[in-house]
Amino acid sequence: MALDVSMPILIVDDYATMIRIIRNLLKQIGFNNVDDAADGTQALERIGKKKYSLIISDWNMEPMTGYELLKQVRSSDDTARTPFIMVTAESKTENVIAAKKAGVNNYIVKPFNAQTLKGKIDAVFGE
């Protein structure tokens, strides 16, 4: 089954440039229904108003980090199964393990390329 390129995606990152990069990469892959948020708190507001098919989040943000966002997302019945990809510069083993334990679907280390992003999205959706 081909990926639904119209699915709503939420990018969460405190750097506008990084949001722009991911947005452009997603656009190249074919995804156009993309929203963004500057941190976990703002992301939760967006998630409360709209159902997203995929969340792509950075880890290191203030006031709410991507790790805290992931735990919040997983603790709510509405979003417990929403695919969540962490895209971050945090590449210590303890980070990857903590994210996996918290229920992340995939983990991308910055810097990354379009192929990696597409590969992880495909993997998350079982393509």
Binding site: N60, S91, E94, T116
Partner: peptide, 22 residues
């Protein structure tokens, strides 16, 4: 919140090692 920041060369795990975990 396990905020270590970007790792230097030779520190941390690379993408292929992470992929094996998933």
């Amino acid at each position: 919140l396990i905020l270590n920041g970007p790792a230097n060369d030779g520190e941390g795990v690379n993408q292929s090692a992470i992929d094996k975990l998933f």
